[in-house]
Each structure stands twice: as structure tokens, then as C-alpha cells.
Nucleic acid binder design. Structure first.
Lengths: 343, 343
DNA sequence: TAAATACGTGCAATCGTTTGCGTAGATGGA
DNA sequence: TCCATCTACGCAAACGATTGCACGTATTTA
């Protein structure tokens, strides 16, 4: 079965009657080995398909060369935005000769801590992470930094730690989207957001508020709700529409919520977008499946992933100074489809 | 900045005036070291947060112990089915103390080959892979087997190689779905499938054919098309509906295609499901977003991923004999929603 | 012809751990 | 008092690769 006890340099050396050092040099094409010997050794290696043992290589070089493994921590995998980001990280990493080790925190603090430890043990050269929802202590991240492992946050950044990060421009994204609603004639624009404890939630709300202000609309607290999933949206929206002065537009913190609103509003007999406009945030699969298709803010997860990997690799390779906290903001893009009016 | 030149056993040994061997044994709690010394060393290590160097550990053990890294090759990441599978693999692997290294082939043969090489170099203990679409030579997979790296295929298996595999029960899944259509009164059931070069395509077609036969319906070749994406579905479906004797039901090879059909059929003014029934295959996000919601075959990607990881770990740990080709079939489940009739 | 310069190789240390074996000192028994 | 036994530790060789240094043999130069 498992006959192939990996071929090593020692084997080649013995077989060809030379020293291990010579084999090593020959394989790295060092000119200090005579041409014929070099070729002979290289050919022998090829024919017996020799593979250098990376473990040994790394051990030898560990003082100078970091590994080429990037640790990636995601809260969940089956999620459009996160898988886009993962896609972007993978693309950038593999293009630059790195590979990625992926672990899922399941939104749990404990998992996050043990993943960090495991990755540290496995000598990743750096870690790209989006915090779990219930993470409120940061010592595990600080340990990493102390151990010299650079850290890049994406999406859910850790405000308490001055590390590199890449986020989407939630403020401008929301601002533009709500402006679009206002400019197409909506007067009473509702806002369904995530709990304000998260940075991104605050930024989006501010974008909403400022867009209203910019267009001379007033902020009605009755139109602002904490709601970030479809089930809740379907639960609270009917009441919204029964108000004496119901909204004529909705901005939702993600596509899922927007689609919940859409289905309720249609069921109640309103015409979308003529009577009620709806705008989401993500531009995932869902957005093109519903009817009419959803106007939404494109989050460009792939770009986020690429930027994160780019920063991390920069930090690892020294292009960016160690300890520097690089902060990048990925611009969003408003994708106008059928749930909002044209001017 | 990067002060922490990793603490090694040598450092501890020097600091405490003992030999490295003693430190090693003390840290592994060997009884051959006196209790006090053991405790002292352990405490020192803890206080200076010593981390064993896994690279060195692995090198030392490489002859006997395989690494605990599982290589996972996916054709693409931003895809409901594949991310579910990845999710399942991650869950099973991390529960059993393994981590996963993820690489994306982009459906390219060359990428696949170079990924295999890189993973071999990086000493993964095994590889879980779904073949790229344009892979037609299998030497890279054979090399892996020859190098003693076990291989498990999922989804797109490689028929030419007798390796372990886990697939969903495409045949029965389709059979049940088409039977459901027949049993709810559909007489002319169309089939949109993937190119017959892929195993899964054949199996699904056979399920379709046999279901028709079972219910006394005849197979009309005009109702069978190669079509596995939304754009194509939107292009060819209008013509289908203009036939003198148009279909009263569609079975599509995936949800995306089914939704393409749905949008066309609705636009043409047919009532779904009263006049036309539609059934997809996947049960991804899309299925609950469209209106009416899609009846579809649940593919249970997470389960596929778990089974694949289970097999691989079994092979690695010797629970399953090396060289054994374990073949598992994950049962599908028909999820009946709004695009098909009730009896 | 002797000395200086390549050139091609091998020796041996090194990376951080693990582990078989040897041994000094303590303890026990006769 | 002497030998057997045990305890607690150190020595040194691995794992597989890299690399500074030394050295023997040609070739060139004075």
C-alpha cells in the first residue's frame, strides 16, 4: 500500500555516491556544482519524483523566513458576503504564493480563542479575522500581536485594538442609497438596522440620518427599527404599513431583510416600486432572484478580501512596517434595479 | 516591535540550568522527571508563555505521524452548494482536531495540478477534492495516491480512479422530484440538465427517465434540454412554451435554472403552479426568495462535507484500510414549496 | 618549478523537538 | 561493607534540509 517512504536528499546522495550537501546545492542549481553532476542529480530527482520536505525547509529557515500560511477566521461560511471575502482572500493569497487555512468561529468567543491558539501553534504567518458576535475580550488578539503575528480585521473590526482593517464604506453606501430614494421622490423613508453595538450599524445609521438631512427630510423615530433578518422583517413590517402615515420607502441593512419587507409589502397589495420603494445592502444572490429585482448597495466582498490579504502580506513581507495599522475602506456601489423608481 | 524571538526549550533549559531533554520530558509530564523540577519547568514555561514549535515537532515525527492538515480543493467558493460542503468539512475536521487548507481551482486543470503539488509539498495528510470541469487527465491524482496521500472526491468524482467518494443521490433525488410532479397531475414534464459528460448529469437524467416510465408517461425528446444556468433558461424557455404542446412542468438541474424558468413563465402570463409546475435541485438561498417559493431537491451539502471529512480522517488514522475506496451516497430530500401543486 | 588561484566537493553545525541509552547518586538488602 | 536496584537526569542521535568553511585537485601565473 503505502510503499513510498518519501524520497529524501539523503537517499539521492547515497544512491549517487555524493554528499547531501552536494545534492542540496545541485537541486538549487548552484553554480558551485559541476554542470554534469548537477544535471545528473536533477534528473535523478525528477525521475524518482523527489519532493523537498517543506517542514524541514521551514524549520531550517524559521528564524528568517516566516511560513506562507495565512490563517483566516470567518464567523460563518454559508453566507454570500463571507464567501465572497474568502474568495478574494484566496485569490490574492494564491496569486502571491501563499495558502490559506480556514477556520469558522461560529460566532463564538471560545472557538475564536482556541482557533487563534491553534493557528499560532501551526505557525501561520498572519491572521485575517472578522470578530465573532459575542467577542468582547481581546486578549487573544493581543497575544497574537505580541507573538509577532500580524493581524488584519475585516467586516467586524475590533475597535479596542489598533490593528489593520478593511471595511466597506457603510456610511457613504447608505448615504447614497437613501439619497437615491429621496431623489426618486420618497418622503417617508424607513430604516431597518442592526443593533447599534456594532460599528457597521452605527455607520449605516449615520449615513441614513445625513442623507435625510441633506434632502430636507426629517428623521421620524417611528420609522427606525432594529431588524436585520427576514423573519423579523416579516413580523414588524405589517404594523409599519398600518401606521396613519406609513413609509413610502425602506432601507434595509441587508438583502435578506429587504426581501422580507418586499414579500410583506407585496402581500399587502402595495405596488413596488410605484407605491413603496425598497433598497437593500449586500447585492448577493438573493437580489436578482426576487420580483422585482432588488435595488441594493453592492458590498464588494471579493475586493474586501483582496485588500485584507494585500495588507497582511505587506505586513509579513515588510513592505508595510510592522506594527503599522493600515486602514482601508472599500467603496460601495449602488446597484439600481426594480424595487426603486427611476427619476 | 517584534521583540519576541520565540522562546524555545533550549532557552528554558539554559535559564533553569537543566538539559533540553529534561525540559522536553517535564513539559510532556513524564514521570521520569522529579515532581518539583517538573512543576518548576512547567510553571516557567507557562509564565513566559512558551509555545512548542509545531514545525520541529512535525519534522521529528514525520516518519510516523502525519500532519493534521487536510487539503480541500473547491472549483469555486461563492456558491451555495460548495460553501455548504466546505462548512461541513470544516465542522467535522475541526471537531476531530484537524485544520483545513482551502484552495480554489477556478475550474482549471492547470490550477488543480499546481494546487496538488503545493499541497503535497506542504505535507497535508490527505486531500478532499471536487474535480475542475476541464480536468480530463488524472495523473496528478495518481501521483498523490502514489505518494501515500489519501484522496476523497465529492460532487464531481473522477470515474477513472478508484478512490473514495461521496455524492448525493442524484438518481433518487430526481426520481422522487419528477414522481412528485407526475403525482400532482403533470403530464408533460420538461428536463433541463447539465452536459451529459458529467456523471451527475447522467444520473439525474436517468432518474427523470425512470420516473416518467414508472408513472406511465412517455419521454419526449423535445422536452429534454442541455441548460444549467439562468441566462440559458431565460433564452430557451419562451420557445418551449410556444410549442404546440407545451410542457406543464419543468425539472431543472439546479435552483438557478429553475428560477430562470420561473421568471419567464410568469412573464408569459402562466400561473405557477396551477398551469405550470417547476422543481429545482439544490435548495440554496434562492429557493426561498422567489415568488412563489421553489420546490426543490435538498442537496445537503453540509452532510456531504462531513462524510467526506469522515472518510478522509478514517483513511488517515487507519480506521479505514489504506487503499480502500469508501463510497458513500448522501440521501436527498424533496422540499415541497409553492412552485408545485399539492395533491 | 613554486606559488597563487580557481573549482568542485565534503564536513559539520544548525533549526527545535523527541527519545533510546547510559550513568551518577541515593537507597536498600545481605 | 559491598553489590543490586531505582530514581532522576544528561548525552547524543535522530527528523530533512541549508550553508559557512575547509580542503584536495587542477589550472594559471610569476
Amino acid at each position: 500500500m503505502d510503499d513510498s517512504q518519501q524520497l529524501t536528499m539523503k537517499d539521492i546522495a547515497r544512491e549517487l555516491g555524493v554528499s547531501v550537501a552536494t545534492v542540496s546545492r545541485a537541486l538549487s542549481d548552484s553554480p558551485s556544482i559541476s554542470r554534469e553532476r548537477r544535471k545528473a542529480i536533477q534528473q535523478f530527482a525528477r525521475e524518482h519524483n523527489y519532493f523537498p520536505n517543506v517542514i524541514a525547509e521551514q524549520l531550517r529557515h524559521s528564524r528568517r523566513n516566516p511560513s506562507r500560511a495565512i490563517g483566516v477566521i470567518v464567523p460563518e461560511l454559508v453566507h454570500y458576503y463571507f464567501s465572497s471575502i474568502l474568495d478574494g482572500i484566496e485569490a490574492e493569497a494564491s496569486a502571491r504564493g501563499y495558502h490559506i487555512i480556514v477556520a469558522k468561529s461560529n460566532e463564538s468567543y471560545e472557538r475564536e480563542v482556541s482557533i487563534c491558539e491553534a493557528m499560532l501553534k501551526n505557525k501561520v504567518c498572519g491572521i485575517i479575522v472578522s470578530q465573532a458576535k459575542d467577542t468582547e475580550r481581546y486578549d487573544h488578539f493581543e497575544h497574537l500581536e505580541a507573538a509577532g503575528v500580524p493581524l488584519v480585521f475585516y467586516d467586524r473590526i475590533c475597535p479596542a485594538i489598533n490593528a489593520s482593517r478593511v471595511v466597506v464604506d457603510d456610511y457613504m453606501g447608505t448615504m447614497n442609497a437613501v439619497s437615491h430614494l429621496a431623489e426618486t421622490g420618497c418622503k417617508r423613508i424607513a430604516f431597518y438596522g442592526a443593533p447599534m453595538s456594532m460599528e457597521i450599524a452605527k455607520n449605516r445609521f449615520n449615513g441614513y440620518r445625513d442623507a435625510l438631512y441633506k434632502h430636507g427630510l426629517t428623521l421620524d423615530k417611528a420609522l427606525v427599527r432594529i431588524c436585520d433578518n427576514r423573519a423579523d422583517a416579516e413580523r414588524i413590517t405589517p404594523a409599519m404599513m398600518r401606521m396613519e402615515n406609513p413609509p413610502d420607502a425602506f432601507f434595509a441593512v441587508n438583502d435578506e431583510t429587504a426581501i422580507g419587507i418586499l414579500s410583506v409589502v407585496k402581500r399587502l397589495g402595495y405596488v413596488v416600486p410605484d407605491e413603496v420603494s425598497i433598497c437593500g445592502f449586500t447585492n448577493g444572490f438573493r437580489a436578482t432572484v426576487c420580483d422585482p429585482m432588488l435595488t441594493t448597495v453592492e458590498q464588494r466582498g471579493t475586493q474586501v478580501g483582496k485588500e485584507a490579504a494585500d495588507i497582511l502580506i505587506g505586513l509579513v513581507e515588510g513592505t508595510l512596517p510592522r506594527g503599522h495599522a493600515e486602514k482601508r475602506i472599500v467603496k460601495t456601489r449602488l446597484v439600481v434595479r426594480g424595487t426603486t423608481r427611476t427619476i
